[in-house]
Design a protein around this nucleic acid. Sequence first.
DNA 1: CAACCGATCACCT
DNA 2: GGTGATCGGTTGC
Length: 211
Amino acid sequence: MPGKREHILPQSFYARDPRIVARDLLGKILVRTSSQGATKRRLAGRIVELEVYLGEGDLAAHSAAGRTERNQVLFGPPGHAYVYFIYGMYYCLNFSCMPEGNAGCVLLRALEPLEGIETMAKARGISEDRLGSTSGLRLLTSGPGRLCQALGITRTGFNAEALYKRDSRLQIVEDGFTPGEVRTTMRVGITKSAEMPLRYIIAQNPFVSRG
DNA sequence: CAACCGATCACCT
DNA sequence: GGTGATCGGTTGC
């Protein structure tokens, strides 16, 4: 469970170089709220792995070829969700960074599940008897496609959603937790601009998607 | 307008 | 370690 005093990160948090944003987002909590009729649901996980995609000189970034209808959130104001569809079956969740007009974003690659674990398991098709072990819990939100499925995040539902508003269904909150050692590695699954160490992980955290 | 291929995952050997 | 599923955006004819 997250600690007592939570507060939402302001939009200005995201209006910076995505390498700084990624470093500062490690250990923060992603909260997804939904109101299904009268009942309010809250799903939450701590961010343990991110990748950075730069606005300039990064051929692996969706913004590399300029603004299109699909990627326009990346060029818009900071602190908004950029959700894209990949491999015909998965979604990936990014946060726009840098002041408006500049691309640059962070990709969420893994969370440590904190709240709503049974709901996440259902969304992922994971049976409840696997949730007692770390290896079972890892199946929920360790991986960019997995975490979107666990939280019910799709492009039509969440692309362009603001992260810094009180009534947003997607928020980043801070609870005082500070990660230990942070490491950077090469990014996963890309071929272009692959040599830049733009993957940020909390060292030794068991919910990191690999390595 | 057809072909290609990807910021993935699950399941196989 | 390898590969098929599955489809929208982008590229190239």
